[in-house]
Design a protein around this nucleic acid. Structure first.
Lengths: 172, 172
DNA sequence: TATTGTTATACTCTATAACTATA
DNA sequence: TATAGTTATAGAGTATAACAATA
């Protein structure tokens, strides 16, 4: 029995939005775990010939998403990790010829990280595998719901990303 | 230029649903990272007096979500990790008196893990902090969008969880 | 014999600190 | 002096294998 309902004006009383959100948090967590470190992504990586280097795969995905070569720092920001971690993942990827380092024309301190042909092909296979799996999961959904989910989820994630950046800034 | 558009019959041509999904994947990943291991959850844990034990916090959240004592194996399943990991996190939590082990009346091999009063209070503060932050992020959204997001996200996550369980089963 | 959990061990992920080179 | 990146090191997160106790 709710303790904080000073009035109940109508049958369609809008419930506390926090209740739905509370239920959503663990689900976001599980979803994130599934996309970041479950057997599904393990399989996808295997299918793409990427071994079991989750973090290095993340770098390739970040490069794919950006659609252009990125500096170490940019990759670190997008992945929400610190620089040295990316330095090492990139070294691993470079040893496997999945990425190249090219000089940044605007700054001699930095290098741009660019996927090789093999890297591009691998990340494409990786994403195609994941995409197929999630498409199957949504196959029975009404188109409207599917569209809404993708649209709202994108907006939500972008809002959250923006606010997290503010949080980090204010920490400095 | 798209290479796979055999026809363009109308302005509102429904685009390939995979395109939106492709854009959604990295966002799910970022969202998951924010909820599972960013500075936000670090702050929330600090605010709740839970130190920096992300994984142990996860156990407390799992217990809170379940609303009842859970066995080690059940916690591991819900968190998508293996048993020994949970054994250790629970040992840490027990040392801090944040959980208790009680015998499982139905099976002498197992024990049920139950949050202590301190553990319950801590996880409540933790979730309240997170919930407040996410509520703020959604504060400017139209109520309809907010409701849709929460509803569709929950359904999606549950679908995915079900399908992941099938994946694990078929691996055995 | 199968299942629940624990112990022991090792590998991956990620952060902090100290440093180098360029701006 | 500030910024981009690297090296070195340490700690958290997580898995696998071998085992114990109970079903």
């Amino acid at each position: 029995m709710p303790t904080d309902s000073p009035e109940s004006p109508e049958a369609h009383e809008p419930e506390d939005p926090r209740l739905g959100l509370l239920a959503a948090l663990p689900r976001i967590s599980r979803l994130g775990a599934a996309v970041n470190r479950g057997r599904l992504v393990e399989r996808a990586a295997e299918h793409a010939g990427l071994g079991r280097d989750r973090s290095a795969v993340g770098v390739l995905v970040a490069l794919h998403t950006a659609g252009k070569p990125l500096r170490i720092g940019e990759i670190a920001d997008r992945m929400q990790v610190v620089g040295p971690h990316i330095t090492r993942q990139v070294q691993i990827l470079e040893k496997r010829d999945l990425v190249h380092r090219i000089p940044d024309p605007h700054d001699a301190r930095a290098r741009l990280i660019e996927p090789s042909d093999a890297g591009t092909e691998a990340v494409n296979r990786y994403l195609a595998f994941l995409l197929g799996w999630f498409s199957d999961a949504l196959a029975d959904w009404p188109r409207q719901d599917r569209d809404d989910l993708v649209r709202l989820l994108a907006r939500f994630a972008d809002d959250v990303t923006t606010r997290l950046a503010l949080l980090d800034d204010e920490e400095t």
